[in-house]
Simulated assay, not measured.
Amino acid sequence: MPRFHVCLHLSSGTELALPPGAARHVQVLRLQPGGAITLFDGAGGEWDATITRMGRSDVQVRVGAHHAVEREAPRAVHLAVGLMAAERMDWLVEKATELGAASLTPVLMARSSLRLSGERAARKRAHWQAVAIAACEQSGRNRLLDVREQLTFQEYLPQAAASAEARWVLSLAAGTAPVRERATALATADGVALLSGPEGGLSPDEDAAARAAGFAPVTLGERVLRAETAPLAALAAVLLG
């Protein structure tokens, strides 16, 4: 059944107009009055809904029963990734949403190939949040990946160090513990902040600063993975392993 995210308060028995994005999607799918869809607002659970009217640019629905369905991971993983080429960031956001990451913070690092500021950074954040919404609709998640405001590396470290979560940084250094090994040692409910670099990885100074801030180095093995692949592989090891 088609699923749509709506940034509206939902309650059983009400009628409402779908937001423009969801309405366009319904029209593209050529759904008709009487058709059944599923709605979710990101606050948990999902609602049955029935299309009651199809206008030229608007779609009206009647909200039905609420289902307290949760499909979230057993622990929260908060990704922090070095800004990288735009198409790689899009792919990373989509797959991180599908795998179950709780949040994603874009971090401007020394080797970042993509550099954003001001209005351009705000537009990119909105774009990535839209990518996450589409991935939630497709994958069955009822809670959105939180695409957070871009930070510089120097801004991110103290913010992460102030939390009570486990903190890991992906590293190729000799003697580094495998991700799976550290994940096995975590209690089920423990959250993790996972830091990963852009193309070319963290600089030596950034790696040293992350460790000094309490980030334990973790590895995925001896092969060098692409910047968009490495955090997803680590995420899968933590949440699906």
Rank of each mutant, 00 (worst) to 15 (best):
A174F: 06
G191P: 11
V169A: 05
Q154L: 10
A101G: 01
L194M: 03
P178H: 06
E149A: 15
A213C: 01
L202K: 04
L116V: 02
G197A: 05
G200T: 02
T105W: 12
F153I: 03
A212F: 15
S103C: 04
M109C: 15
D190R: 02
E199H: 14
L108R: 04
L202Q: 09
R143A: 11
A173V: 04
A126F: 00
E199R: 14
Q129V: 04
G201R: 05
C136E: 07
A173K: 15
A164C: 05
H127M: 02
Q150H: 06
P106F: 06
G191S: 13
A121H: 01
R123A: 10
Y156E: 07
A174V: 09
A209L: 10
A132L: 08
L144N: 07
A173T: 05
E137P: 06
A134N: 01
T152P: 07
R123F: 00
Q129F: 06
G175C: 10
I133S: 07
E165H: 10
A132I: 03
S139A: 08
R115D: 14
A166R: 15
S163H: 00
S112L: 12
L195N: 14
A102Q: 01
A187P: 07
F153W: 04
A121Y: 02
L144C: 10
R111V: 00
R148L: 03
R123M: 04
S196F: 10
S117L: 09
A212I: 13
A102D: 00
V107K: 08
F153T: 06
G140Y: 10
K124N: 09
A210P: 13
E199K: 14
M109Y: 06
A164M: 10
D207G: 08
A110N: 07
M109P: 11
R211S: 09
A187S: 13
G201M: 05
L151R: 15
A121E: 12
A189T: 12
A122W: 11
S117H: 07
A210G: 13
L114Q: 06
V169D: 05
R148C: 00
W128M: 07
